[in-house]
Design a protein around this nucleic acid. Structure first.
Lengths: 243, 243
DNA sequence: ATCGTTTTTTCCGTAGTACGGAACTTTGGG
DNA sequence: CCCAAAGTTCCGTACTACGGAAAAAACGAT
């Protein structure tokens, strides 16, 4: 469905450009013909998802706010209190992610009070094999699904600690299932250690994580943190089950 | 551009349905053929703007969160502090709206601390002739534009105080231009009084308003409130000019 | 387990929508 | 005032999207 995809491509491009761009800038970034873009933006402006400024440049429109809010409420709203408790107990950034196709997507986060902290963009898609939340999500999937999924994505190296061996990853997943949590040792971002646990329940795979610099999240801290993250996962699962 | 419009129609329908619905429910609500909807949702799921739950039902997807956040940041982020000050000074709900086509759209709000308070949905479109922000927006437009716009929309009565006479509305606009603010006397919602002022500047029409029940917002309060709302409009305009 | 019903998904020929090159208009800068 | 760049409109072609119909899958009842 081409035109739908292109319409959203424009919105994303606009978001990447900082929320404002002219038609020709959009044409250059997307590689689409100006006439095509014009037709798309005209429709989007008419619907209120885009706004045309007096300068004839375009901005994301007000109706996106409503959709985004509804979507966020759906995921984040009920999750942030739990994440906030985690941050209070641990002092590091807490995230909630869900499985979306072959990737993990962050849908809620509460940042750490430290000035040096993790910053994960809400809505960001990350691979499963090299992130805490990703590996936690994998522990919730049947082996057959894991195999199929990894077959599609492969295990590209992101840092030099990224697990690129399918056998090693499978062992990691098995360990995660056993302990109830997984650890990411800078596999996506050097120097960042992350503890993640699945959010159990009948609602589609989700996972919660806490991440911070390896300097603060040391071996001693890990022992204290892990049970708290697992407990948070259970709490989130329980909340979801009620809804 | 049909398919784009239909795609967004599905997203909105889903939002209306509380964020979750099955395919057949969407078919019934939108009146579209199941095959058509299936094709649309398949595309949207593939793009990440929709998520399919294990129950095969659909939910708003995580990527909408990012778009919505970016859009909200664009409007609301810089505005909420000012609106918050207004609420602190006045104790009633404060809103920011922009002109979008022939309607006003609320893009930011800070609710009043009272339990009985205005509730305006972010992203909601309202007519210009019967709302505080709408009339404030009209005061910023050249007479020719006002005429053209009112010619398109007409002046439908929403409550029994709605101004339906073009001459009376024009006088109201003239008065607003003179005083720097307008008053909405339950013209959109019975029992609600609202004070609104334009946000001046070269960024496209915008307006700020404060609204509450007529019981609290009485004549005496009006005298105190009006200058504050006008000042807030100026502050917002100044912030926008810097960006 | 077996069968009927409802919901979801796939198929496919047709209709019409979207495409994009090119021409035209408007805007902003010199 | 003129020129260059950006934005908008036009229009014939091609392909995309449409939706009825049939198949498949899930659900529930017996």
């Amino acid at each position: 469905m081409q035109s739908l995809a292109r319409g959203f491509e424009l919105l994303e491009t606009l978001a990447d450009a900082g929320g404002e761009a002219g038609l020709s800038e959009l044409a250059e970034r997307t590689g689409l013909a100006p006439a095509t873009i014009h037709r798309l933006v005209r429709t989007l402006v008419g619907l209120g998802y885009l706004r045309q400024l007096p300068s004839r440049r375009y901005t994301l429109g007000p109706r996106l706010v409503r959709l985004g809010d509804t979507a966020e409420r759906l995921f984040g709203r009920w999750a942030t209190p739990v994440l906030g408790d985690l941050v209070g107990e641990i002092g590091e950034t807490a995230n909630l992610a869900v499985l979306d196709g072959d990737h993990a997507v962050y849908v809620a986060q509460v940042p750490s009070p430290h000035s040096v902290r993790m910053f994960t963009e809400i809505g960001r898609r990350v691979p499963l094999h090299c992130t805490g939340v990703g590996k936690a999500l994998l522990t919730t999937l049947p082996d057959a699904d894991v195999t199929a999924l990894l077959g599609r994505t492969g295990l590209p190296a992101v840092t030099d600690t990224t697990i690129t061996d399918p056998v090693a990853l499978r062992a990691e997943i098995a360990l995660g299932r056993e302990r109830g949590y997984v650890i990411d040792e800078g596999e996506q971002e050097p120097g960042v250690r992350c503890v993640a646990a699945p959010v159990p329940g009948p609602h589609g795979p989700a996972a919660v994580s806490v991440s911070g610099p390896q300097g603060r999240v040391d071996e001693a801290a890990l022992a204290r943190i892990a049970p708290l993250v697992v407990a948070a996962g259970l709490r989130l699962g329980a909340i979801l089950a009620d809804t």
